[in-house]
Nucleic acid binder design. Structure first.
Lengths: 154, 154
DNA sequence: GATCCCTTTCGGTCGACACTGAAACTATCG
DNA sequence: CGATAGTTTCAGTGTCGACCGAAAGGGATC
């Protein structure tokens, strides 16, 4: 007997969360992301997420705040509804990746400063130069690559 | 009265270590990296690093092991010398970055699996599709970009 | 204004991990 | 085969952060 689609989806959500946990996103935050990517209907309240993901209301609140803050999740309040509704903001995923690229490219300022401190000592700055060159190249190419990214569909 | 070059270099090392601490590398590991990038002479023993960075021998040992393991530092032993000498392996920095790229591209397999689970339900898979497309593009472009990376000198 | 429902805040617990320093281990030299 | 110099292992400590659940906070309806 085969397992149902929903069961497999929740296993998928767990894998999804595990991946982002390695990148420093709290497990529950990752679960929220994965869940909001595939749930039907697309909008959920904090209470529903708490029940569905078996996490405390506090954890859900903290993580939603974080996710809304970085833009990956959107909060919507409606008149006549006490509960706010949350949904994935899949278009913000590009910003999420861009921040990663920026983090990589930002090392270049660091290596650059180091090179300045060692100026006039070519012998000693050889090692740093190799690293600086690499990051210099990256901080040229990554933004250029990013320009060519495909437009998100409406 | 201006501060000496060595003083400014140790401040730089601290900034360097702080950056990589945000990426999950232990502070002492980052200090070792920064220090080995600019020290003169280029090779140091564990004992010297311990003294210079004011870290316990245990921490130095653990972190050197880790850094040697990921290839960023090279260990050299010599006959007639009881102390091993460590030096930066600046050429391995490319692998270090490539691992980051691989981590990003690997999400594509995840989103892909998710898409398969939702196959036959285009309505529901819309959100995931947007993310999947983005990672699909990245896992095409990042390796291609990497091919064009400048060769390390010597 | 009172009640209800949902969300956020907050104190507390738990586990993970960086770090330390001493003890065990290894290799070199006399 | 000591003696010595250096490195690694390991148990213990402290810190940090994720998570929980209860209490406080804030709207909405009556």
């Amino acid at each position: 007997m085969s397992v149902g689609r929903e069961t497999r989806l929740s296993a998928w959500i767990e894998r999804f969360a595990a991946h982002f946990a390695e990148e420093g996103i709290p497990l529950i935050g990752g679960r929220i992301l994965g869940y909001l990517l595939v749930c039907q209907p697309v909008e959920r309240t904090a209470a529903e997420l708490s029940q569905e993901l078996e996490a405390s209301s506090g954890s859900i609140s903290t993580n939603l705040k974080y996710l809304v803050n970085v833009g990956l999740v959107t909060k919507r309040t409606r008149r006549g509804r006490q509960a706010a509704e949350y949904r994935i903001n899949e278009k913000a995923w590009t910003d999420f990746i861009q921040r990663k690229f920026d983090a990589i490219a930002s090392v270049q300022t660091l290596t650059d400063d180091g090179m300045r401190l060692l100026s006039g000592d070519p012998e000693r700055s050889m090692r740093l130069r190799t690293v600086d060159k690499l990051y210099g190249w990256l901080s040229e190419e990554l933004p250029a690559l990013w320009e060519r990214r495909p437009a998100a569909p409406k």
